[in-house]
Simulated assay, not measured.
Amino acid sequence: MGESLAADPGPGRQLGQLLQPRHRDGAQEVRAPVRASGSRDNRAPDDRSQDHARRRGYELCDQRARALRPDDFERFDLLVAMDAGHLRELRRRCPAALQHKISLLPGEIQIPDPYYGGADGFDHVLDLLESGCARLAQIAAGRLA
Rank of each mutant, 00 (worst) to 15 (best):
A27I: 00
F73E: 06
P95T: 04
F73R: 02
P9E: 13
A134L: 10
S131P: 00
A97D: 12
A134K: 04
R143Q: 14
A53Y: 02
G107M: 03
G16Q: 02
P45L: 05
R13A: 12
M1R: 14
G117D: 15
G107T: 05
Q28S: 12
L128R: 04
D46W: 06
H86L: 07
L90D: 05
G142A: 15
L18E: 11
G142P: 00
E130I: 03
A7L: 15
L104S: 08
R35E: 14
Y115F: 15
A134G: 01
I109N: 01
H52P: 01
A6D: 05
D51I: 02
V80C: 01
R55A: 15
H124Q: 13
A145H: 05
E89M: 13
D127G: 03
I111S: 06
S4H: 11
G118N: 14
G26R: 07
P95Q: 02
P95M: 09
L79V: 09
R69W: 06
E29Y: 08
C133T: 06
P45F: 00
L98W: 10
C94G: 03
F122C: 07
L5A: 09
P106W: 03
D8R: 14
E3W: 11
A96E: 13
A141R: 15
A97Q: 12
A81C: 11
R13G: 15
G26L: 06
A44Q: 08
S103F: 04
E59L: 04
R91M: 13
D8G: 07
S131E: 15
P106G: 11
A97N: 08
G2R: 14
K101Y: 12
Q17E: 15
L129A: 03
R48V: 10
P45H: 01
D46L: 10
F76T: 06
Q14A: 14
E74K: 14
H124L: 12
R13Q: 15
C94L: 05
I102M: 02
G2D: 10
D41I: 08
A7M: 12
P11Q: 09
R66T: 00
D62M: 11
Q20S: 10
L68A: 05
G57E: 03
Q99C: 09
I111E: 07
A97L: 04
G26V: 02
R48K: 07
G38K: 03
A119M: 09
V125Q: 11
V125M: 15
R75W: 13
R54Q: 13
L68Y: 07
A53G: 04
A134Y: 06
V34I: 12
R75N: 06
A67H: 12
G10W: 06
R64G: 08
R40Y: 15
Q138D: 13
S37W: 02
A81V: 05
G107A: 09
I111F: 05
N42W: 10
L18M: 12
L144F: 14
P33Q: 14
R22E: 05
E3H: 13
G107P: 02
R24E: 09
Q17G: 15
P11W: 10
L90T: 08
Q138V: 11
R56N: 01
A145G: 08
R55Y: 01
L144N: 10
G26A: 10
S49V: 04
I109E: 08
G16R: 01
Q99N: 01
S103M: 14
L105D: 11
F76L: 07
H52D: 00
D62Y: 06
E29C: 12
E29F: 12
L5C: 09
H52F: 08
P112F: 13
D113C: 11
R55M: 10
E3C: 08
